[in-house]
């Protein structure tokens, strides 16, 4: 008797696991006819700030103005997703949703998601540079004052703005150095650099700048701490002196303009993403505004 029950129990356990795992294979995105759910980053995110500032409805009112001046809330179908990575995971898991992330983060995840046109313009580096693609924002490094930066930090910035650094930046972003020169390796003894803040800036640093910076300085063994969960943290840490430089993926916040200096290192697009099989190809600002603020679904033709 009991052995049977136990056997059944074990079998059930395995089947539940199997079901759970198989369910993870996802749903068919191609058959989706409308987008009903929208993901937002939390308020500390620079991408959030830039997106809400840039997306305007047909009356020219931005999401930010609606939320902060008119006291309106996001519609009920808007969910928060903590980090850049979770937006990708969430959108990939739900074909009826869309979200926005740094354009630089799209290329590595095209097996799960795709970027759609905004106002009929492809999200490409070229279109951002030409100004046709409207959803773009700067990446800034922030600090109290340039003169007080450590030599290593100054050298790090010089690397980003060097010809070598700009070549890396320009792969997925738009470099902002006007006349890049060849990089001069670091001569000093400092080894530690702490950068905190935006999760949108982190891929640029993690995948391009930091490894190359280390390589460009053979014989040195740098410890570069790269952490944080949003642009807000970059600013607050910089004010508190908890980092060497903060990373923010928008303009410097108004309340910090008197305390911090910002150094723009790149321009980045904000890509509107959907699950990779969804047939949606284009969204307009008005559609985005209405989805986020009024919960109006976006129909897929």
């Amino acid at each position: 008797m009991k052995k049977k029950i136990l056997a059944i129990g074990l079998a059930a356990a395995m089947s539940v696991t199997a079901v759970g795992l198989m369910a993870g294979c996802g749903t068919d995105g191609a058959s989706i006819t409308q987008i009903t759910v929208a993901f937002s980053r939390p308020a500390s995110s620079g991408t959030y700030g830039a997106f809400n500032e840039l997306v305007v409805n047909s009356d020219g009112k931005s999401i930010d103005e609606a939320r902060n001046d008119d006291g309106l809330d996001f519609a009920e179908n808007v969910q928060y997703s903590n980090e850049t990575g979770t937006v990708i995971a969430d959108v990939a898991a739900n074909p009826q949703s869309l979200g926005y992330i740094s354009l630089g983060a799209v290329a590595a995840n095209t097996d799960k998601i795709k970027a759609v046109q905004v106002n009929g313009v492809d999200a490409t580096v070229a279109n951002i540079e030409s100004g046709d693609y409207k959803l773009s924002r700067p990446f800034n490094l922030v600090y109290k004052s340039y003169d007080d930066l450590s030599d290593l930090a100054k050298n790090f910035i010089s690397f980003i703005e060097s010809t070598e650094g700009q070549a890396l930046v320009n792969e997925d972003y738009i470099g902002q150095a006007e006349n890049p020169v060849a990089y001069v390796p670091y001569e000093g003894d400092e080894t530690t650099l702490t950068l905190t803040g935006s999760t949108s800036v982190q891929p640029l640093m993690r995948d391009f700048i930091i490894p190359a910076f280390q390589e460009a300085n053979p014989g040195k063994n740098f410890t570069i701490n790269l952490s944080g969960s949003g642009s807000g943290q970059g600013e607050t840490d910089a004010v508190a002196g908890n980092n060497d430089m903060g990373m923010i993926s928008r303009e410097l916040g108004e309340s910090y303009t008197s305390q911090l200096e910002a150094h723009t290192i790149a321009l980045d697009g904000i890509a509107v993403i959907v699950q990779k099989d969804v047939r949606l190809t284009n969204v307009t600002f008005d559609q985005l505004y209405n989805l986020y603020m009024n919960g109006t679904p976006i129909q897929i033709a």
Binding site: T17, V19, G20, L21, A23, G24, T27, I32, T36, V37, Q79, A89, D90, A93, N94, P95, Q96, S97
Partner: peptide, 19 residues
Amino acid sequence: GVAVILNLIRGGDVYYIGK
């Protein structure tokens, strides 16, 4: 929760995000 429970809740019905 993310990999199993959310999928079980969705149960194939994509209307529910599940969270």
